[in-house]
């Protein structure tokens, strides 16, 4: 009887409630991105007149035709891939234990994951700089127990960046995996065991497929944060190991070449979108097969 007018009123309420945030994002995220796109089409003359009033594709061409830039893109992709794999390998056992624990033990393990998350990347990277230097704790320990004769250089190397970045991003992966693993009905394990499946078989045939949504969402998050990471590559890698983010920063802030910085940013976004959509289509096919 009164259902119809009430529903209509509620429809307006829901729109009004989400409107401020939507407008805010359209203006300052989508709008800013549009201006960044326009900027990437502007001509630029280094040293001389700076930004020109012309519209051209020269900035994209400058990126695509220069092996130096392409190498940086390749390096960033490889870095993000290794960091994602590392986070999956280290995150899975931790999230698995977390999802099976209850009460105080779960709270304690959660604490161990949350405190790093609440500590800024700058501070954690600083800790790794102390640990990973040639005279740092890691190398000194490895040398004193005789595993290596001379220090393994990790500072100003990709190895160091990847180690530090795995630690910086691991909490995101653990939280995503934990959320997926918590959703698994425990009775499925009992059923599998009653049907005679061994531990390994249960892990590969039951746990892993059911955790797939968490694996996908965690990997997407970690890969995206890794390929665009600035702080850790800037501090551990320094100018010797440029990645996409430090390159964008250098062009935008140090060299004030906004058009090229904008073009590099958009190349990175496009590459990211292509990779993530490929990953998601593979994952959705795998999930369909599993179910």
């Amino acid at each position: 009887m009164t259902a119809a007018p009430r529903r209509e009123r509620r429809d307006w309420t829901q729109v009004l409630l989400v409107l401020p945030n939507t407008v805010w994002l359209l203006l300052f995220m989508v709008g800013a991105l549009f201006f960044l796109f326009l900027m990437s089409l502007r001509g630029y003359e280094p040293g001389g007149r700076g930004m020109l009033d012309t519209w051209e594709l020269s900035n994209y061409w400058a990126f695509i035709s220069d092996p130096f830039y392409l190498k940086i893109l390749g390096r960033s992709l490889l870095m993000a891939l290794w960091v994602t794999i590392g986070c999956l390998i280290l995150g899975f056992p931790l999230a698995y234990a977390l999802s099976r624990l209850r009460g105080m033990k779960r709270a304690l393990l959660y604490f161990a994951v949350l405190v790093p998350l609440l500590t800024s990347a700058v501070i954690r990277t600083f800790g790794w700089m102390i640990l990973l230097s040639n005279k740092g704790f890691v190398n000194q320990t490895l040398m004193s127990i005789g595993l290596i004769d001379s220090p393994i250089p990790m500072m100003y190397r990709m190895t160091g960046i990847i180690i530090a970045l795995i630690q910086v991003l691991l909490p995101f992966m653990v939280l995503a995996l934990d959320a997926a693993l918590l959703n698994i009905d425990r009775q499925i394990y009992d059923a599998a065991r009653n049907l005679g499946a061994g531990r390994v078989r249960i892990f590969f045939r039951v746990t892993l497929p059911l955790a797939l949504p968490g694996i996908v969402s965690g990997s997407i998050l970690v890969f995206t944060l890794a390929i665009s990471a600035f702080v850790t590559p800037a501090l551990v890698g320094g100018p010797r190991i440029p990645v996409m983010a430090t390159l964008i920063y250098q062009q935008g802030i140090a060299l004030l070449n906004w058009p090229l910085g904008a073009a590099i940013s958009l190349v990175m976004l496009v590459v990211l979108v292509v990779i993530l959509s490929a990953l998601m289509s593979i994952a959705s096919r795998a999930m369909r097969r599993a179910s």
Partner: peptide, 18 residues
């Protein structure tokens, strides 16, 4: 929720230009 995945390095430059 998309700003969670939006690279901050790109957001920074985009806002600076804007």
């Amino acid at each position: 929720l998309s700003p969670i995945l939006f690279p901050t390095i790109v957001l920074g430059l985009a806002l600076l230009v804007f």
